[in-house]
Design a protein around this nucleic acid. Structure first.
Lengths: 196, 196
DNA sequence: CTCCTTCGCATACCGTTGGTATGTGAAATC
DNA sequence: GATTTCACATACCAACGGTATGCGAAGGAG
């Protein structure tokens, strides 16, 4: 005999797993609920028992992906000894994480279109962007970069890395990752307070 | 008596105009073809006579929007006397143009999701991104910034401005445009070759 | 002017889609 | 062991994007 709670969790996990796989491979609009429930071995009744709508399932998948990215970034950054190294390492980790197909399609391409940019930003600020803003604030407090509003800078850098990651995935330029990291590092370095 | 060519153009313009209006206001997915053709005063037959699909109509609308943005940017940049001023003015013009609702929704949010990022990038490189890449190349040739691959830098800057523009549209922070321009200018300045 | 062709578009129709309302059987509760 | 709960299946619907066909006026040929 299997408990109801276990069965419930298992079904939910199946839906999230297959939804994520299909959304990544084909994009939100091109995936039908029939595909998802068939792949998960259940019916539409199960899906609508767990999620309010197709967009709601997507939201849950997106939250998972974002949490993974944030965890990777935080983990990489925390391994560094000083605030500046943490900042640079975190940015590079984000760029690397954003090259994963699931991150590209779900988080960067479909996310804003499906949920609207405002809701997307709310979710993003709860994860990735939050770390970036905190790191910038810490750098200002440590006088490593000049005092300035962090919000605009956060979005400038976040957007730069997002777009660069998408470009990396589609380019055939040799050593694109290397040159991009170089250019990014140069940009980041330029933020530093000039040592007088 | 009205000529057939005139009638054809008029119908096409109506579809583009109403499509653009509705896509801007509600987003691609939320707009039905029935809405568009009703607003344009025609039927679905007319739409499919001019465009191969809903996505094809969107592509035509997107091309219009991109052309307008590119024209504004080029016009602003060309009014400047030297390459560096042209570059900075062009970036600021792009940031300003990207705050228009049509640009935000059609070009920045729905574009990549509807057409796929690869096709979106192809269209973008034919317009906005092309100017940016050319400006950067000119700056390198003039020894105003150090020699480096322009492609990654183009995407870093383009992404930064795109995301910043979206943030500007949704924030209530006072003087967000001003602080963003300041931060952007600082980033741009940091690219310059150090005067030794 | 007349006939015929072209073509811009309207009408009617179809398969699929996201979403809902209801049924059902096993697990949980008493 | 009766009753309730709940996770899910089944059956159904309106709306959507897309297609196949019909039609009437514009445009050329004689």
């Amino acid at each position: 005999m299997i408990s109801r709670a276990d069965q419930r969790d298992q079904t939910r996990q199946s839906l999230l797993r297959e939804g994520r796989r299909l959304f990544t491979a084909e994009g939100y609009a091109a995936v039908s609920l029939a595909q998802i429930v068939t792949a998960a071995g259940v019916t539409k009744g199960a899906l609508y028992h767990h999620f309010a709508s197709k967009a709601d399932l997507f939201r849950a998948v997106l939250a998972e992906v974002q949490a993974e990215v944030a965890r990777e970034v935080a983990q990489t950054a925390d391994a560094q000894p000083d605030p500046w190294s943490q900042f640079v390492a975190g940015c590079h980790a984000f760029l690397a994480a954003s090259t994963a197909p699931a991150v590209q399609r779900i988080m960067l391409i479909d996310g804003p279109a499906v949920l609207g940019w405002n809701e997307w930003r709310t979710l993003d600020e709860a994860t990735s962007a939050r770390h970036l803003a905190e790191a910038l604030t810490a750098l200002i407090d440590a006088h490593l970069i000049p005092p300035q509003p962090v919000a605009p800078l956060t979005h400038l850098l976040s957007g730069a890395m997002n777009e660069a990651a998408l470009w990396l995935a589609s380019t055939t330029t040799p050593d694109a990752l290397g040159t991009t990291q170089t250019a990014l590092t140069r940009l980041l370095n330029s933020l530093r307070t000039p040592t007088s």
